[in-house]
């Protein structure tokens, strides 16, 4: 494997966004790019990352390899990279280590690190292609604000999407709260628009603790997409350039 990223910041942000949710992960490398799928310890949330080969220049992967990496270790090494450093990942066939180099674009500084790899026997889930009943695309900062504000009151949020809009509601010991958003096009700045596409009404309840955690990815993208269907996990997607993405799935809370 040899994969060169123009900006180390991208990988730094991705790892920062997921390291509190998942610890040891396989980075599956093949000629289409670098993918990661991992569940949190409680098997309630799942991270699915895809960094397409087009996000790297150049990208070369001659044989499929799984790089088992501890994200705490990776974070320690990535802290040594400046955001605008050029980052290159390298690994041999059947590797013991992954090699990372950070090159400063404006000086002759080159730093080089090896991280020991681990054997990770991870359960892989098959995620079917789903036609979601509701898809909401909104500013990622708005979604962060909603989850943060509501998490101060309650552990859970009900998300209801109808043709009127989307409503986030919570009930806690001190009282209750809600935030409603309508479809809205911001003509000056499209990134601030709220787009809602709905085929049937949806109402689901989720744990806010996980949603707050997902929002650590907000720095990766101005926009976030929420995909919901009744009685299936929520998909929270942060799109990256070149069709790369960071997705989170969250199992709902089910009424008894």
């Amino acid at each position: 494997l040899e994969a060169r990223l123009e900006q180390a910041a991208m990988l730094k942000r991705v790892v920062d966004a997921i390291k509190d949710l998942v610890q040891d992960c396989n980075f599956d490398c093949n000629d289409s790019g670098i993918a990661l799928q991992a569940m949190d310890n409680s098997h309630v949330a799942l991270v699915s990352m895809m960094l397409k080969s087009e996000s790297f220049s150049p990208f070369r992967c001659d044989r499929n390899i799984a790089l088992g990496i501890n994200l705490t270790s990776l974070t320690k090494v990535l802290r040594a990279a400046q955001g605008d450093d050029i980052l290159t990942l390298k690994a041999e066939d059947a590797p013991d280590v992954v090699n990372l180099t950070f090159e400063s674009p404006e000086s002759d500084r080159l730093s080089e690190y090896d991280i020991k790899l681990m054997d990770i026997d991870q359960e892989h889930l098959g995620i079917p292609d789903t036609e979601y009943a509701a898809t909401i695309t909104l500013p990622s900062s708005e979604f962060s604000r909603i989850t943060r504000d509501l998490s101060a009151l309650s552990e859970s949020v009900a998300i209801e999407c109808t043709k009127e809009g989307v409503k986030f509601t919570c009930t806690g010991d001190i009282g209750n709260g809600s935030v409603s958003l309508r479809q809205h096009t911001n003509v000056e700045n499209d990134a601030k628009s709220v787009d809602i596409s709905l085929t049937e009404p949806v109402a689901l309840t989720f744990s806010l603790k996980y949603l707050v955690n997902f929002c650590k990815a907000a720095g990766l993208s101005d926009r976030v997409r929420l995909c919901l269907s009744n009685e299936v996990p929520l998909l929270v997607e942060y799109g990256l350039s070149n069709n790369s993405y960071l997705r989170f799935y969250l199992a709902p809370k089910i009424g008894d």
């Binding site: 409680s42 889930l125 089910i254």
Partner: peptide, 14 residues
């Protein structure tokens, strides 16, 4: 009250 579901209830383990 509601119960937290697990992902295996929705996605198949490969």
């Amino acid at each position: 009250s509601s119960q937290q579901a697990r992902l295996e209830g929705f996605f198949q383990v490969k």
